[in-house]
Write a protein that binds this DNA or RNA. Structure first.
Length: 465
RNA sequence: GGCGACGUGGCGGAGUGGCUACGCAGCGGUCUGCAAAACCGUUUACACGAGUUCGAUUCUCGUCGUCGCCUCCA
């Protein structure tokens, strides 16, 4: 029985979902700057969830949005001297590349805020009609005083929120906790026609509106980073309850923990971000994905390059162990371990531990049993989105390679042939017991990031650093 | 200040009222011309104080500390 932590009740609940239709919405990025590792974590851990639900035979409809209009995007694009569209497209592309490299299942729909302006306007009209919103000189605002259950998700009171220091009183809102649904545009700002005047949507309205337009009034699971609980998700709830007072809106709220750097949250405002695509280039998607598997999704997770290297080593051990076996569900004990761990609010670190315990105990198994263990482990990781392929990362230009091999009188055509020829030359030296020259060749090719290993099957591999 | 989470070996990270994961690193070994890889073996822990209990790392209370949110955030 799958159990998940529901932020709304602050407890782990047995999920009760219709197998034929599970609607999941994940708050995706605001495309103002390049993805950092924290974005990667959110995408990957909820990809584990989607894949696991599919494994359990749930029919999942998965939506992940892109917020492509917002104050920060406007600000940032002005700084760079490009349009908000250009900035948004560039960053969206970077996110897309990262999702793909991390092997995250593509969402069934990936809506952008700017593609849903008419729907957003209709949603605001509904809120006005239901008397949850009001018009001022600067825009349309949500009237929090009309919604009694505000802040149930974060477990705060309005007084708590008001004591916060960053609250802005300068706008012409009725109450400081009211938030913008529609902002009238200033000069040189992107804007859309609306019944109330030219402007753009507020930050929270696009999620409520897109969920409603694509998935309907109610969804099963709403996910996002735990830094979105307040105000973003509180405001989404307020909007949805204002527009559809008799609907539940979201059955289970799931929030992932933040990624820390030296104990501090990684975020744009802290300026301690590590760019996702840099690490994906360096370590490959599988190692980064495995890094996220090592921590339970709700816990804060410590990041460092060392830990990423560690993940790579551990992953390689698994790849090596299951090498030459096809992924297949053959060992029921392992499948039970898998399901039991995942059912416990996606306890992926426990799963890894249990799998290694089995590996360590696999000495006494006979050949068939061992093969079954290997295929089942490979199968489990396949479900979790791992392909267990040895990744080859080439970071050298052809010119580097041509020049390098020229020194050894090898014509460079492709990397595999050239290295094989190189290794053959070196083997010759070793046969003649000219070890000094052979060792030099092994040393020398390290500059290409290639290490030669005697006595292993492939004989060579790419190194990271 | 308010609300919440947490404190486990060198690092990361599970879990449990008694049998004390797991990974990485370290150390010792096998193999090797050497090195690497691989494989085998192995050291180190439950923030502090009190209580409950036959027994507490696990439950309760207190202390200290860390982190997150408090209208930018995944």
């Amino acid at each position: 029985m799958l159990k998940l932590h529901n932020s709304y009740t602050s407890s782990i609940e047995e999920v009760d979902l219709n197998k034929k239709e599970v609607k999941i919405y994940l708050c995706g990025p605001t495309v103002q700057s390049s993805p950092h590792l924290g974005h990667g974590r959110s995408a990957v851990v909820f990809d584990f969830l989607v894949r696991y639900l599919k494994y359990l035979d749930y029919k999942v409809t998965f939506v992940r949005n892109i917020t492509d209009i917002d104050d920060k995007i406007i600000e940032k694009s002005k700084e760079e001297g490009i349009t908000y569209i250009q900035l948004g497209e560039r960053v969206t592309e970077e996110f897309g590349k990262a999702y793909k490299t991390l092997n995250c299942i593509a969402p069934d729909k990936e809506p952008k805020a700017t593609e849903f302006i008419p729907e957003i306007i209709r949603y605001i009209e509904k809120l006005i009609k239901n008397d949850f919103a009001y018009l001022t000189d600067s825009g349309i605002y949500y009237d929090i005083s009309k919604y009694d259950d505000y802040l149930n998700l974060s477990g705060r009171t309005k007084e708590d929120v008001l004591s916060g220091s960053r609250i802005s009183l300068e706008e012409d809102k009725k109450a400081p906790e009211d938030f913008a649904l529609w902002k009238f545009s200033k000069e040189d700002e992107p804007s859309w026609e609306s019944p109330w005047g030219e402007g753009r949507p507020g930050w929270h309205i696009e999620c409520s509106s897109m969920i409603n337009s694509i998935l309907g009034k109610n969804i099963d699971i709403h996910c996002g980073g735990n830094d979105l609980i307040f105000p973003h998700h509180e405001n989404e709830i307020a909007q949805s309850k204002g527009a559809f007072p008799n609907e539940l809106f979201v059955k289970y709220w799931l929030h992932n923990g933040m990624l820390n750097l030296s104990g501090q949250k990684m975020s744009k405002s802290e300026g301690n971000i590590k760019l996702l695509n840099e690490y994906l280039d360096q370590f490959g998607g599988e190692a980064v994905r495995f890094f996220f598997l090592r921590s339970q999704y709700r816990s804060p997770q410590e990041f460092s390059e060392e830990l990423l290297k560690e993940s790579e080593s551990t992953l390689n051990k698994l790849i090596h162990f299951t090498e030459n076996e096809e992924a297949a569900p053959k060992n029921n004990d392992l499948l039970k371990i898998f399901e039991d761990s995942m059912n416990e609010d996606l306890n992926t670190p426990k799963l890894i531990g249990e799998i290694f315990k089995i590996i360590n105990e696999s000495d006494d198994l006979d050949k068939k049993e061992l093969e079954d263990v290997k295929s089942t482990i490979k199968y489990i990781f396949k479900i979790l989105g791992f392909n267990f392929l040895k990744e080859k990362r080439q970071k050298n230009t052809d010119e580097d390679l041509i020049n390098f091999f020229k020194k050894y009188e090898i014509k460079f055509s492709n990397i595999d042939d050239s290295i094989n020829e190189y290794i053959a030359k070196r083997e010759n030296l070793r046969k003649k017991k000219e070890y000094k020259a052979a060792d030099e060749m092994r040393e020398s090719i390290l500059e290409l990031g290639i290490s030669i290993e005697d006595g292993t099957e492939n004989g060579w591999s790419w190194k990271n650093s």
